[in-house]
Amino acid sequence: MNNDITSSFKPFLQPKEVYQGGKNIPPSNKKIYKLSSNENPLGASPKAVRAAKAILDKVDLYPDQTDIRLREALAADFNNEITTDQFITGNSGSEVIDMLLRAFVREGDEVIFSNPCFLPYAVFSRWYGSKQIDVPLKAPNYELDVEGIINAITAKTKVIFLTTPNNPTGTYIPKSVLDEFFKRVPKSILVVIDEVYRHFADAEDYVTALHYVKQGYSVIGLNSFSKTYGLAGLRIGYGYTTATIANYLRLIHKPFLLPITSIEAAIGALNDHEFISETVKTVKEGRKMITATFEELNIRYWPSQANFFIIEPPFPEMEFTDKMMQEGIMVRPVTQFGAPGKVRISVGNKEANLALIKALENIKTRD
């Protein structure tokens, strides 16, 4: 007889549905380039690191009871186009996702997302007993299916997740498409625009959630300090929305939520404009270099507005991943993200990108 306490509970999830983050670099005698987790190619913001170190002698004290200082820094970073009471922060963008789902979703409600996408949209919403509605991106270019989403909306729909640029595809949603979408979606539904890669987007018709927040739509722009600022290890993220929605979310915002080091590092990172510019420059130059290699080697890829690419490898994805690892390059299969047979490759610094190119050339030569 099973007396384990868990035996009396029926889990919402099966093990295969649990989100698994990217792997760390394994012990090796040779140089390994980690191009599997979309981390900052230059490391962390120097101002952020200095700010975190400077506060270490005060870690015996509780951090700020609220996140107001960080929200003030965020408002300034947005040129005060929105106010401090329109921001919500958390321990990573993923926690902000969890927070808004806890606030707006109940058992039996429906959540819409579009695969391929970031797996936690589905995983986290399932924790609260909701029904997941997948309206896949349209093949072959991974375009948002506005008509499909509108047709999928019911009286039980509470949250819709959109991502631009999208993880894992690197594609984006043009402004004209988002304009049409917001004209048709009921304002009673919270629309989450995950834009954690927004700094790397340079398409003329790219637009962030800010445009729609300022018009008063029920929308939240989701952001993270993990990519552009290089603070993935400190787990800090934020969202911005209307004051009404943000104040509602703050009702479940725990006191002393953010670690003291994370608060200081995030404020420092927002002010490190030189590092931000250099990061964006490095990614855009790397995208051009890697794109040219894909073209030369006839590797199918999708144009990216983020700091990574999704490709259709010349071998089955796991075989390709193993071959790349043998060449000293870590890449990530994205079947779990809803893109079977595809692999995601992050843009690195110049040294890493040159190593990637050499690895791709070696693999294709042996093909």
Rank of each mutant, 00 (worst) to 15 (best):
I55M: 14
Y19E: 04
V123P: 00
Y19D: 00
T335A: 08
N223K: 10
F256D: 14
I133L: 09
E180Q: 15
A52F: 08
F337G: 01
E274N: 11
K53P: 02
E17T: 04
S346M: 01
E107M: 14
Q132E: 06
P116N: 14
F337N: 03
M99G: 07
Y121V: 03
R235D: 11
L137Y: 11
Q14I: 05
I112V: 15
V196I: 07
L258K: 07
I260K: 15
A122V: 08
L354T: 06
K53V: 05
V185M: 10
T365W: 01
R106P: 03
Y217F: 15
I220P: 03
N40P: 01
L162Q: 02
F315G: 00
E278Y: 08
G338R: 00
R287Q: 04
L42T: 05
Y33P: 04
A266T: 06
G239F: 09
M330H: 00
D179T: 11
G233K: 14
L144N: 09
I267W: 14
K34M: 02
I252R: 00
D109L: 09
N271H: 12
A139W: 12
E39S: 14
V347R: 02
L234H: 02
V123K: 05
W127I: 05
I252M: 08
K187M: 08
K34Y: 01
K350M: 14
N79D: 11
A269V: 09
